[in-house]
Design a protein around this nucleic acid. Structure first.
Length: 656
RNA sequence: GCCCGGGUAGCUCAACGGCAGAGCGUCCGCCUUGUAAGCGGUUGAUAGGGGUUCAAUUCCCCUCCCGGGCUCCA
């Protein structure tokens, strides 16, 4: 009789097995299908290869290939196969790291003679990979001492560096695929390359060794890999969908905005259709801010250098600023990267009483930032943008309440723009560098935490992630296809009030320093515009849509009635266009639909006679004939109203 | 900034180193139309600069602009 061991399964049951039984064998014993789907085994929470023998008392969980954990294993193994393919195609290639990432994997290489990959190489590499998969090479785990590892990878400097960075005395592991390829790796891996095959190499890129731009730049290849053809295809489909709602593409298709190269990188112009959307966005924001007790200020785009010396921007933000303009008297002027110093000067324009606080100054402020040329991206990363910026000056006692009401206001407003799902991130004191006392930080961080908790949302801690001048909360929003965007930030600032020696007179008739809160909801109007455009895939809700209704007379002689319909709708505030009968109805409907107009209204003989309209609403299956004009005007008038007039009788319940 | 790829008409895309083309759009006619493409015509482009060549959209260099990426750490 062979010796027996007992292992514990996830449901708490124990199972007796012959000593030496591996995770893979256990999976097959539990069930044939589980045995086939198994890709690794979690032993006491640690992922193991299926081929490793289990030990007595182990808590064992079989990991299948259709889970995130399982896919990470097969992606990691696919990365090894890619590395083998590359080393066979480019003898002497050095390889660095090749981890699984969300939806795929990458591997970094340094090719002999400083060569680099081009897109056309991907096909060759894929072909080689398929060959390796076809060979059903086993992944064999080996354990070595660090010294043996250094010897084994003597011609692989990146691997050696990894080994040298490990704690002294630690064992290293390697995985061998036949005698042609061995890679330093923690594992685990699939038992054989035959388990792989549903992959696609997606792009080549440069990447710095260990992400450090001072170090060697390597050649990175990204790929994706899945447990089945169906899963791979579903993934590629999702990518297509995301591409179809890319705001840069929709911006061109819907004639909303563009980036004329004559102007410069990262500098957008909004066309009339985009302009009206933006106007609607901004008007609503203004109305809500006004109702919430904000005051409106305006400030110029440029300033003498001394302002940014006082604010500290030239010390810690100079890299993000455009170079200065030199004037005749050797005075230097800068484009402003932030609005705060200007608002502070408004605060300081006269003495302030505690009775004026909280003082909330709002501005759609244009700022300019010198983003590195490689990072500008559509509307989401630009060099010139408009922040929906406000600075709130409060007493220390007012801070907790103001934070909470501001956060409530922010979330309420974002919901009005149609975003539904959020989580919050709290960034705390960076240990290395921070101004202000420990007590100040603790108090402010706690106030932020309490405000966040009051929102009943998931709160993620970003330990040490705050700026040196204060902690912050950022609002992360999920869009219609599940992507998260960092939007609003609420930032406390201990630095500026000090640097500018801001003061107010308290009830004790003594001078006190106010606390300053920076906050933006959209982040920038441009970026938020892009986020909403992607969120709605171009189909803005009626109140934001550039054209809210298109009126289509069937024949020329219906034009007078079409004009009446148009006038009635305009009178209740709708943006209406009329497509005259210069081409057949089908073509005009198609054009209006492609422009994602919420209501396409067709009027013909029946409608003229009965004072009705044919309504083809966006998203509905069938058009509705014979809707009375009065009814239509009432319905569309309500649908086109901004959210707070519609659903919020106590409009601005936000900040008190 | 750095690596890879790219820039042809308003848009989407063609064109061995040898006359730069199509569809959509624009504009003009005709058609007079009931729920996602009527017909005909018209207009319109090689990002900018330099080089190689008898000849450059095509090959080389520079500038500008765009796209992907630049630690989810063996």
């Amino acid at each position: 009789m062979a010796e027996e061991i007992k292992v514990i399964l996830p449901d708490g049951a124990t199972r007796s097995l012959p000593a030496g039984t591996t995770g893979g064998e256990l999976a097959a014993l539990i069930g044939r299908r589980l045995g086939e789907a198994a890709i690794a085994v979690a032993v006491d929470g640690e992922l193991w290869d299926l081929s490793r023998p289990l030990f007595a008392g182990a808590k064992v969980r079989i990991v299948t290939d259709d889970t995130d954990e399982g896919r990470a294993v097969l992606r990691h193994s696919t990365a090894h196969v890619m590395a083998q393919a590359v080393t066979e195609l480019w003898p002497g290639a050095r390889f660095a790291i090749g981890p699984p990432i969300a939806d795929g994997f990458y591997y970094d290489f340094e090719l002999p003679g400083g060569a680099s990959f081009s897109d056309s190489d991907l096909e060759r590499i894929e072909e080689k990979m398929r060959q390796i998969v076809g060979e059903a090479q086993p992944f064999v785990r080996e354990e070595h001492t660090a010294e043996e590892g250094l010897e084994l990878f003597s011609d692989q400097p990146y691997k050696k560096e990894v080994i040298e960075s490990l704690p002294a005395g630690e064992q290293v592991t390697a995985y061998r695929n036949t005698d042609r390829f061995v890679d330093l790796c923690r594992g685990p891996h699939v038992p054989s390359t035959a388990r792989l095959g549903h992959f696609k190499l997606t792009r080549v890129a440069g990447a710095y060794w260990r992400g450090d731009e001072k170090r060697q730049q390597l050649q990175r290849i990204y790929g994706t890999a899945w447990e089945s053809v169906a899963a791979l295809e579903a993934h590629l489909k999702r990518l297509e969908e995301a591409e179809a709602r890319d705001h840069r593409r929709l911006g061109t298709e819907l004639d909303l905005f563009s980036f004329p190269s004559e102007i410069g990188s990262g500098l957008a112009v909004f066309h009339p259709k985009g302009g009206i959307v933006r106007l609607a966005m901004e008007d609503y924001s203004r109305a809500r801010h006004e109702a919430a007790g904000y005051e409106f200020v305006y400030s110029p785009h440029i300033s003498k250098s001394n302002l940014f010396e006082t604010s500290g921007h030239l010390d810690w933000f100079a890299d993000g600023m455009f170079p200065p303009m030199e004037l005749d008297d050797a005075q230097r002027y800068y484009l402003k990267p932030m609005n705060c110093p200007f608002h502070i000067l408004i605060f300081k324009s006269r003495s302030r009483s505690y009775r004026e606080l909280p003082l909330r100054m709002f501005e759609f402020g244009s700022v300019y930032r010198y983003e590195k040329s490689g990072v500008v991206h559509g509307l989401t990363r630009v060099r010139g943008m408009t922040q929906d910026d406000a600075h709130i000056f409060v007493t220390r006692e007012q801070m907790p309440g103001e934070l909470q009401s501001t956060l409530a206001f922010v979330l309420d407003l974002l919901r009005d723009y149609g975003l539904e799902e959020f989580y919050l991130e709290l960034s705390t004191r960076p240990e290395a560098k921070a101004v202000g006392s420990e007590e100040e930080w603790a108090e402010a961080t706690e106030a932020l935490r309490q405000a966040a908790l009051a929102m009943n949302l998931e709160l993620v801690l970003d330990e040490g992630g705050g700026a040196f001048y204060g902690p912050k909360i950022s609002v992360q929003a999920k869009d219609a296809i599940g992507r998260t965007w960092q939007l609003s930030t609420l930032q406390l600032d201990f630095q500026m009030p000090q640097r500018f020696e801001m003061e107010y007179v308290g009830p004790d008739n003594a001078r006190h320093r106010p606390i300053m809160l920076h906050r933006a909801l959209f982040g920038s109007v441009e970026r938020f515009f892009g986020v909403l455009l992607e969120h709605y895939a171009g189909a803005f809700p009626t109140w934001l849509a550039p054209v809210q209704a298109s009126v289509l007379p069937v024949r020329d002689d219906h034009a007078p009635y079409a004009a009446e319909v148009s006038h009635r709708l305009s009178a209740v505030g709708l943006r209406v266009e009329t497509l005259q009968a210069t081409e057949p109805l089908g073509g005009r409907i198609r054009r209006a639909k492609l422009e994602k107009v919420p209501y396409v209204l067709v009027v013909g003989d029946d409608d003229v006679a009965a004072h009705t309209v044919g309504v083809n609403a966006r998203g509905s299956e069938r058009p509705e004939r014979g809707v009375s004009l009065d009814e239509l005007v009432a319905h569309l008038g309500a649908d086109a109203a901004p959210p707070f007039r519609r659903s919020r009788p106590t409009a601005a319940s936000g900040a008190q």
